[in-house]
Simulated scan of single mutants.
Amino acid sequence: MVERLSAEARKSALKGLSGWAETPGREAIARIFVFKDFNEAFGFMSRAALVAEKNDHHPEWRNVYKTVEVVLATHDASGVTARDIELAKAMNAIASQFGVT
């Protein structure tokens, strides 16, 4: 089992994650990605899904047209872990390939 990050470690990690913030009322991090159109949003989700599956760590997400809302938390740890931070970094890198920063 992975360890949950302390509040201080979580805040520190978020400083290096553009667009991500703590989720109010829950120990999780979230970001909203906005793409040019549905095709880009779905392409992002497909690429992110491959990374998530490879790491056996899956996001909570929702897609409406060109917007993808993502929430990350490690359920086994009841909060944010290094796995969430790594997946957030990977998602930012994938989004940047579509010009989303």
Rank of each mutant, 00 (worst) to 15 (best):
E40R: 06
A93C: 14
T74S: 15
R4P: 05
A49V: 08
S18F: 08
A88Y: 02
S78C: 09
T101S: 14
I32S: 12
E53A: 13
R31A: 07
A21Y: 05
E60G: 02
A28M: 04
V71H: 07
E40T: 03
A82I: 14
K66M: 10
S78M: 14
A90Y: 12
N63H: 09
R83W: 12
V100L: 15
T74G: 02
A30V: 02
N92W: 14
G16Q: 09
A41F: 09
F42T: 02
V34G: 04
A90M: 15
R62L: 12
S6T: 13
T101P: 09
K36G: 10
R62I: 06
T81Y: 03
V34R: 13
T23K: 04
K54N: 09
R47V: 07
A28P: 00
V51F: 12
G79C: 13
A73V: 01
E40S: 09
R31K: 14
E53H: 13
M91Q: 01
W61I: 01
D37A: 07
A90P: 09
V100R: 11
R4F: 06
V2M: 07
A48C: 11
K15M: 12
A9C: 06
L14S: 10
E27T: 08
A49P: 01
I29V: 11
K54Q: 11
S6F: 04
N55E: 14
N55P: 00
L14D: 05
H75S: 13
V80T: 02
S96R: 15
R31N: 04
K11N: 14
R62G: 11
G16I: 04
N39L: 10
L72E: 03
H75D: 14
E8C: 03
V70Y: 00
T23W: 03
G16R: 10
R10D: 05
A48M: 09
P24V: 03
M45W: 02
E27M: 03
A93T: 15
K36Q: 13
A30D: 05
M91K: 01
L87S: 00
W61T: 00
D56A: 10
S12A: 12
E8T: 09
A48W: 00
K66D: 15
R31I: 09
W61F: 10
E60S: 12
A9E: 12
R47S: 06
A95P: 01
K66T: 13
A7M: 07
A41H: 00
S78L: 14
E53R: 10
G99I: 15
K54I: 04
P59E: 03
G16L: 10
K66H: 12
A77F: 08
G25M: 10
R31Y: 05
S78N: 13
F38N: 06
I85V: 15
M45A: 05
E22C: 02
A28T: 05
V71G: 05
H58E: 00
